[in-house]
């Protein structure tokens, strides 16, 4: 991916690999990951737990645990025509970057607020840490954002964290996250463990904010429905690699990788009388000694000898929809068979 960066690309992850060093060996948590995130775009990283989604997102703001080692790659960030490699920022630059350019929200969100400080103080402190000392201006901006996340702004601003429900805290955090107008917002499992109606409120609020403030989103989720609803682009992550990436409709209606297809067919649908659902066999591999060839081959219903020998690369008929699989035709046949069954139903 060495093409020049277009103006509309805010973030480019280029051939990134990360390992965790442990007593038992190196965990290959991220392997040769590349993607472009465009301005105003929402991208979803989906996959089972342990596939490396959080690792990728933490690397974008350099919040990786101490035992992580970036073995290769770049994270290029573009703002106002300037391109910087996030992996090369100094400590001071990084602190700025994390709020003003690329904010991460919802990591352990319920405890993200200091319980003894009013919400107001937490907004003011964040602003001051970045050289913004005019409390009235901060207040004005904060109230505007709290209104945007559909909270009663005056009340929440003066409240202590414990006075807010889980969903309200989540939304307050979102408002705080965008206080300094970042271009990229990273959300790790933004709705996991929230109830349906609280989830709905978060989704609606996020959509509205994104439209108003025009930031880009990277969100991580094991919830396909959330990706279907919020993402422009979806990337499927398996065993530390992106195995398929493409526009949301292509990914859901024309999946090219057996793993993406496996994920899609493992969830029942509310409006289907009879679901042709089945789980993906087996479990994700140990990333200290991942399988040879295509890492999905031990679980893949379409695997052939070639799959255990050679590692497929991302390819596709459309330039923006790529999948790494040797047997795309076999999957296509299987999908046609399922479609016939569904029609016959």
């Amino acid at each position: 991916m060495s093409q020049p960066m277009n103006d509309d690309v805010v973030l480019r992850v280029d051939d990134l690999s990360i390992v965790y060093q442990t007593k038992r060996g190196n965990v290959q948590a991220t392997t040769n990951i590349s993607f472009d995130l465009k301005r105003g775009q929402a991208m979803a990283l989906i996959g089972e737990s342990g596939s490396g989604k959080t690792t990728v997102s933490l690397s974008l703001i350099r919040k990786l645990p101490k035992n992580a080692l970036i073995t290769q790659g770049q994270v290029l960030y573009q703002r106002d025509g300037n391109v910087r490699d996030v992996l090369k920022l100094s400590k001071r630059e990084l602190r700025e970057f994390r709020w003003k350019d690329c904010a991460m929200v919802f990591q352990g969100s319920q405890n993200a607020f200091n319980p003894v400080l009013k919400i107001r103080t937490q907004f003011e402190d964040t602003a001051r840490a970045h050289g913004w000392t005019d409390k009235n201006a901060v207040r004005e901006r904060a109230l505007e954002l709290l209104r945007l996340v559909r909270l009663d702004p005056e009340r929440v601003y003066e409240a202590y964290p414990h006075e807010l429900s889980g969903g309200m805290k989540q939304r307050t955090l979102l408002a705080l996250g965008v206080l300094l107008n970042p271009q990229v917002v990273i959300l790790d499992e933004p709705t996991t463990a929230l109830d349906i109606l609280t989830q709905r409120a978060i989704i609606d609020v996020l959509n509205e904010m994104q439209q108003r403030l025009n930031f880009s989103i990277i969100f991580i989720s094991h919830d396909l429905s959330l990706a279907a609803e919020m993402a422009d682009v979806v990337a499927t992550v398996y065993a530390g690699e992106i195995v398929e990436i493409g526009p949301v409709n292509d990914m859901f209606y024309d999946p090219q990788h057996p793993y993406t297809h496996g994920l899609l067919t493992s969830v029942p649908k509310l409006d289907h009388e009879q679901d042709f659902v089945s789980s993906i066999a087996g479990a994700p591999p140990n990333l200290i000694s991942p399988p040879s060839g295509c890492k999905f081959h031990p679980r893949c219903p379409y695997a052939t000898d070639k799959c255990s020998e050679d590692d497929p690369t991302l390819t596709g008929e459309k330039p923006d929809h790529l999948a790494a699989c040797w047997n795309k035709d076999a999957l296509l046949e299987a999908r046609e068979e399922i479609a016939r069954k569904e029609l016959a139903q």
Binding site: Q199, R200, I203, S225, E229, N249, F252
Partner: peptide, 9 residues
């Protein structure tokens, strides 16, 4: 309120 695993729907 439930999101569904089908973008258009």
């Amino acid at each position: 309120a439930i999101p569904e695993p089908d973008p258009e729907k």
